[in-house]
Each structure stands twice: as C-alpha cells, then as structure tokens.
Amino acid sequence: MSQPQRVVLAKVGLDGHDRGIKVVARALRDAGMHVIYAGLWQTPEAVVRTVADEDADWLGLSLLSGAHMTLVPRVLELMKEAHLQHVGVIVGGIIPEADVPKLLEMGVAKTFGPGTSLDEILAFLQKPRERTP
C-alpha cells in the first residue's frame, strides 16, 4: 500500500475566511491523505517552518484577501531558502485570472478558483509525484 501524502493547509495573512480550506481539508482526509491543518493568520515564516517540520509533500495556501501577490512570493522565497523546493505548492481562493500565470511562473504548481470541484483538486494531488530521498 502506498504511503499517505502529507498536506499542510494554511491561511497566510489577515484573511479570516476559513470555510473553504476546511472543506478541502475534509475532502483530502476522506481521500486517505494526512492533512496538517495549520489554520488562520499564519506568517509566511511559520508556514514554511510547518512544511519543514511536518515533512509535507504539498502545501496548500488559501487566500481570499487579495494579498496573494505579496504573500505567495514570500512563502516561495522562504521555501527555497529552507531547501524545500521538492514540496508542491497549490493556491486556492480568490485569485484574479490575470494573476494566475504570474503565480505559476513563480513556481506555484496550480491554482484552484471558485467553483473548483473537490474531485479536481484530489485528481491533481493524486497524480504520481517523485519524492526526494
């Protein structure tokens, strides 16, 4: 049996809307993944530390505040500094279409906007991915 994937889900910044991320957390749990729920109001530094200490395969960030072009690059930069480039980053929430290519260019694996089905997120995460030793 393959080992369950470990996914850190977090909200960075001052955005207090956590219904969406909790629904995603539940879907990933029910799909057999191990979800580390880091919760609201996280700093980029704390999120990256969580990813490192939990040895996560994925980091899912949810942003509905409009601060994604400030906070996501900061998280990606800190992950690089912490030698965590092997961890895939997905972003969900309210991300204007114009910003999506910019985020992908920075190194985000995929963004999931409003109306995304849970199956779509699961299918993306369950695609085989190489784990570094």
Binding site: P4, A25, R29, D30, H34, V35, G39, T43, E45, V48
Partner: peptide, 25 residues
C-alpha cells in the same frame, strides 16, 4: 475507513518560526 487523517493539534499550539521549537503531527 480511508486511512486519512486531519491533524489539527499544531494550529492550537500557536504559530512560530523559532528554531528552538519543533512540532510534528
């Protein structure tokens, strides 16, 4: 049933990037 888990302890422990603290769920 699914083998999945929602590990929700660390978010109650406060967020930190202090090198002297390590939390594993």
């Amino acid at each position: 049933l699914s083998g999945g888990a929602l590990l929700g302890d660390r978010f109650r422990m406060g967020s930190t990037s202090d090198d002297g603290v390590f939390i594993r769920s």
